[in-house]
C-alpha cells in the first residue's frame, strides 16, 4: 500500500465547485476501495456536511479536535452509502484563526495513520483557511471554471502552492497540481461564447485531470445531499469518476468535450439530462 496522501481541492475563487468536487472525489476514491477522509477547512461556513448529506450527524468538528475538546474518532462521520468514506466537518461558529499550523498538522498526521487518502476541501480566497488547507498538501486539484476571473484566481493559487506550501518551504519536490475544469458547456464553447479547454490549459499550463460538464444533476445531487459521483446517471458524476481514475494513475480518455447530440425528442422538450 502506498504512503497516505494529502490532496487539497482549491481554486482561489469562490463558487466554482470546490465543495462539490471535494465530495465527489472523496466519494469516487471510496468507491474504488480507498479508505478516504474528507475534511472541511471552511471554518465558519460549514457546507461539506450538507453536500455530503450528513449535516444532522455532526456532533464534534475539526476545530474541537484541534483544541483537544474531542478525539478524532468522535468527530469523524462515517458515510452511510459508501464503505471507506469518512467526513471531518468543520466548525460553524468559530473563525478561521481556530486553524493553527501545529493543530492542523497534528490532526493530519493522526489521519494518515488511519486513511490512505485525505481530501482537504479548501475555502475560497488566499487567507488563513485556504493557506492551512494547502500547506500540508502532497497534491492539489485546482478547480476552475472556463471564465476569466476563475482562471486568473487559479493561476494565483498555483503561485501560492509553489511558494507557501510546506513542500515549498522545505525545498522538497513541489505539490503536484491537477486542473479540474468544471461547469464546462461544450455547446457554448463550440459557439465561441466560452473559453475552451485548450485556452485554459495554455494559460494555466498544468496537467488536466478532468472536465466536468455543466449538468443540472449537480444541483439535484446537492439538493438531496448526495455526492455527485454516486449518481451513475449523471454525466457530471461519470466525469468525476473518470477524474478519480486518472488521479489514481489509470488512462481514461477525456469525455464531454463535444456538445451532446440531442435527439429530436429531447430538442422538442427542450432539456438535456
Amino acid at each position: 500500500m502506498p504512503a497516505p496522501k494529502i490532496v487539497t481541492i482549491t481554486s482561489g475563487k469562490g463558487g466554482v465547485g470546490k465543495t462539490t468536487s471535494a465530495a465527489a472525489i472523496a466519494a469516487g476514491l471510496a468507491l474504488k476501495g480507498i479508505k478516504t477522509a474528507v475534511i472541511d477547512f471552511d471554518v465558519g461556513l460549514r457546507n461539506l456536511d450538507l453536500v455530503m448529506g450528513c449535516e444532522r450527524r455532526v456532533v464534534f468538528d475539526f476545530v474541537n479536535v484541534i483544541n483537544n475538546e474531542a478525539r478524532l474518532k468522535q468527530a469523524l462521520i462515517k458515510d452511510k452509502r459508501v464503505e471507506n468514506l469518512w467526513i471531518l466537518p468543520t466548525s460553524q461558529t468559530r473563525d478561521k484563526d481556530a486553524l493553527t499550523k501545529e493543530g492542523v498538522g497534528r490532526v493530519l498526521e493522526e489521519l494518515k495513520g488511519e486513511f490512505d487518502m485525505i481530501v482537504c476541501d479548501s475555502p475560497a480566497g488566499i487567507e488563513k483557511g485556504a493557506l492551512m488547507a494547502l500547506y500540508y498538501a502532497d497534491e492539489a486539484i485546482v478547480v476552475t471554471n472556463p471564465e476569466v476571473s476563475s482562471v486568473r484566481d487559479s493561476d494565483r493559487i498555483l503561485g501560492v502552492l509553489s511558494s507557501r506550501s510546506r513542500r515549498a518551504e522545505r525545498g522538497e519536490s513541489p505539490v503536484k497540481t491537477h486542473l479540474l475544469l468544471t461547469r464546462y458547456d461544450a455547446a457554448r464553447v463550440s459557439k465561441g461564447e466560452m473559453l475552451k479547454l485548450e485556452d485554459v490549459l495554455e494559460i494555466l499550463a498544468i496537467p488536466l485531470l478532468g472536465i466536468i460538464p455543466e449538468s443540472p444533476s449537480v444541483l439535484r445531487a446537492s439538493n438531496i445531499g448526495l455526492p455527485i459521483a454516486l449518481d451513475p446517471d449523471s454525466p457530471a458524476g461519470r466525469a468525476y469518476n473518470d477524474a478519480v481514475g486518472r488521479f489514481l494513475g489509470e488512462t481514461i480518455e477525456h469525455r464531454f468535450l463535444k456538445p451532446e447530440r440531442r435527439g429530436f425528442f429531447q430538442r422538442l422538450i427542450g432539456r438535456a439530462a
Partner: peptide, 15 residues
C-alpha cells in the same frame, strides 16, 4: 458572439 477570444487575450496579458 465570439467573446471567448477576448477572454483568452485578456487573460494572457493579465496572468
Amino acid at each position: 458572439d465570439r467573446s471567448a477570444n477576448h477572454a483568452k487575450e485578456r487573460l494572457q496579458i493579465l496572468v
